[in-house]
Design a protein around this nucleic acid. Structure first.
Lengths: 202, 202
DNA sequence: GCCTTATCGCTACTTGCCTTGCGTTAGTGG
DNA sequence: CCACTAACGCAAGGCAAGTAGCGATAAGGC
């Protein structure tokens, strides 16, 4: 009887090139197309499969469900990484920030990303949620530091809350009320956050 | 051959009392319970039916689908109608408004209502969307009128945008970032909307 | 109380989602 | 070029959603 080798938990050698890569690209493309036309909820894996020229079983095995597939597709199609602005003034920076977000949100892909972010039935996304948004809001930190150094900012301002207040109306209109939304409104958002609504400082 | 009577488009006499009422109540209750435990997406009509002591076919016939059922259940369980505040100061009124919304949103039913409002696959809700939010924001109009009369409000302030800016961070945290959210933050929201973040008026 | 028929329960059926098991193809390392 | 096996295609089948037809029950009007 040969000496029993201690089996290291050897994970199988992944084959990421060639056929697998082609399959993945085709499926991701078909999924994005299906997401943009039919929406998040009623997308047929069978349909995606034959659109991609792939057997449905393959999708189930690799992605294991529609939510994981949708998440992978959208994140693959998105590499936002909006560069942090530095226009020289607080107002200019804030305008640049919100103007960098807004056009992307009007994109079908952008709206898809937001709606995906709102879901709570995607355990895969729950893990990434914190990091994702933290990164998106981090760009704002430097912006406020510079403004503070220039004396444009009050001392007690919380950058995160300020950014949330800036973009809040945009999301409220887009997601809930459906009120009109254009560049002029963005300017008004910036000015409201800067100056407030009170007649005189209290 | 008897004279052909012109058939008036006679709609059948609805039977809303007795058994039908009991069935409806039982199904709505079971649906709400299922919604609160399992969420919006994967609720089983069969399960709801046997929970309510009713045959699944009945649900399909009366409601005709899961989206309509969910919408009916949530709207039946909700009669918000938050009374418009009048505390004598703009700051007090804004605080009262946001403090009236916030606790309800933390309720499971409240969060459910919001998430339902975010859906775009409920044609029944699409029709009611505009009116619903318009009504919710209308209460704010009077509030701002009084503030303006007291001289607390700048002249160029748009009430709707101001309210959206006020509640924006609350929804952003609740729906997207998941950052902590408590009463102290509400106060900071109010003060930020009132005073803005700029060091001095431009 | 009686009649009409809206509404419900039940069974059987169709359909699409998803899984399982097995044979085949083609990456990957040598 | 060869051996190993990850990844894919395919067929069969379980399972729950949803539909259709029909008889049974009870609500509403008289």
């Amino acid at each position: 009887m040969p000496a029993m080798e201690v089996q290291a938990a050897r994970q199988p050698v992944r084959r990421t090139g060639g056929r697998s890569a082609r399959v993945r690209a085709a499926v991701i493309d078909a999924t994005l197309a299906a997401l943009l036309t039919r929406g998040l909820d009623d997308l047929s894996i069978t349909e995606i499969a034959q659109q991609a020229g792939v057997h449905p079983t393959t999708i189930y095995r690799r992605w294991g469900g529609r939510s994981n597939l949708a998440l992978d597709a959208v994140l693959s199609g998105t590499e936002a990484e909006i560069p942090p602005p530095d226009t020289g003034s607080l107002r200019g920076d804030l305008l640049a920030v919100i103007r960098g977000i807004f056009p992307f949100l009007r994109t079908p892909l952008g709206e898809l990303l937001v709606r995906l972010a709102l879901r709570r039935d995607l355990p895969e996304y729950e893990a990434a949620r914190g990091g994702y948004w933290a990164q998106r809001f981090r760009a704002g930190a430097a912006l406020f530091e510079r403004a503070r150094a220039r004396g444009e900012l009050r001392a007690d301002v919380d950058p995160v809350l300020a950014l949330e207040t800036l973009v809040g109306p945009m999301y409220v209109r887009m997601l809930m009320t459906g009120e009109p939304l254009d560049d002029a409104l963005l300017v008004r958002c910036v000015d409201l956050v800067l100056d407030g609504i009170a007649a005189q400082p209290r």
